[in-house]
C-alpha cells in the first residue's frame, strides 16, 4: 500500500532530497511540500495524510506547534539538524528522527519503523462496552463506564477509575484507535477522557471527579462539538 505524505521544511534542498527519497522508495506519495507551519496547516486540516516529514525550526511557528494545532495524529518523522529535539520528539510520540543530511538507507529505516504494523501493545478491545488491559502480569477487564480518563506517561498510560489507577505499557496514540469513540474523546496529546464523566469545563480545562484535564487548541472544537450544549 502506498502511503500519503507531506513535507514541511523550509530548506529547499532538504525538501527536494526528501521528495526524491520518497519517490525512490515506492512506498510514499508526496501530496505536498510546505515551507512553514501556517501553509501546512491550511492543507493538513482539509486533507488527512498518513505521514508527515516535519522540520522543527521554521520561520514563524515550530514543527511542534503544528502538531499541537493539528486536529488528528498522522505518523511523524522529524527532520532536523539538531539532536537536542529528541526529548520533545519523545513527548510528541514522533516515530523517528532524521538528522539532516541523511542517507537514503537511513530514510528507509525511518519509514519502515513508523509504518510497521503496531503490535497489540497490551490492550484488546474495539467498539465494545469494555477493554482488557494487561497489567501486573494479568489481563484485567475495565468497563468503559468505570474509566474516568486515560493519561499518557511516556511509554506507559494510566487508566484512572473512581477508586483505582492501572498503569500499562501503551501510548495515547495507539489507544485513540482502540477505545470506543462513542464513549471516549482525546482532549490533548496526553489525555483521552470518558465523555460521560465530565463534570464541568472552564476555558482550556475540564474537570472529572476533581481531576483537572487540559484541552489543547487542536482538540477544543471537537470537545465542544461532543457536548450536549443547550
Amino acid at each position: 500500500m502506498i502511503l500519503s505524505a507531506v513535507i514541511v521544511e523550509d530548506l529547499q534542498v532538504a525538501a527536494d532530497y526528501l521528495h526524491r527519497c520518497c519517490q525512490k522508495s515506492g512506498l510514499l506519495e508526496v501530496k505536498g511540500h510546505f515551507p512553514n507551519v501556517e501553509e501546512a496547516l491550511l492543507y493538513l486540516n482539509q486533507q488527512s495524510v498518513d505521514l508527515l516529514f516535519l522540520d522543527v525550526e521554521m520561520p514563524g511557528a515550530s514543527g511542534f506547534e503544528l502538531l499541537d494545532r493539528l486536529a488528528y495524529s498522522p505518523k511523524v518523522i522529524l527532520t532536523t539538524s539538531k539532536t537536542e529535539y529528541a526529548y520533545n520528539a519523545f513527548e510528541y510520540n514522533v516515530g523517528d528522527f532524521l538528522k539532516k543530511p541523511f542517507t537514503y538507507q537511513r530514510f528507509i529505516e525511518a519509514v519502515q519503523k513508523v509504518t510497521a504494523p503496531t503490535p497489540e501493545n497490551n490492550v484488546s478491545s474495539t467498539a465494545t462496552d469494555h477493554i482488557f488491559i494487561k497489567t501486573d502480569g494479568k489481563l484485567i477487564r475495565l468497563n468503559n463506564s468505570d474509566i474516568l480518563f486515560i493519561e499518557s506517561m511516556g511509554d506507559y498510560v494510566k487508566f484512572v477509575s473512581a477508586d483505582k489507577k492501572y498503569i500499562t505499557h501503551n501510548t495515547i496514540k495507539n489507544l485513540e484507535e482502540k477505545v470506543n469513540r462513542q464513549c471516549f474523546l482525546k482532549t490533548h496529546r496526553s489525555y483521552i477522557i470518558n465523555v460521560d464523566k465530565i463534570d464541568d469545563i472552564r476555558e482550556n480545562l475540564l474537570f472529572i471527579k476533581g481531576n483537572e484535564i487540559p484541552i489543547s487548541k487542536a482538540h477544543r472544537s471537537e470537545v465542544l462539538r461532543r457536548l450536549n450544549i443547550i
Binding site: 530548506l11 534542498v13 532538504a14 532530497y17 520561520p59 539538524s81
Partner: peptide, 14 residues
C-alpha cells in the same frame, strides 16, 4: 542564530 541554523544543513547536502 535562526538563519545560521537554517543554512547549516545546506552545506552538509553539498
Amino acid at each position: 542564530q535562526k538563519i545560521v541554523h537554517k543554512i547549516k544543513p545546506a552545506f552538509g547536502f553539498t
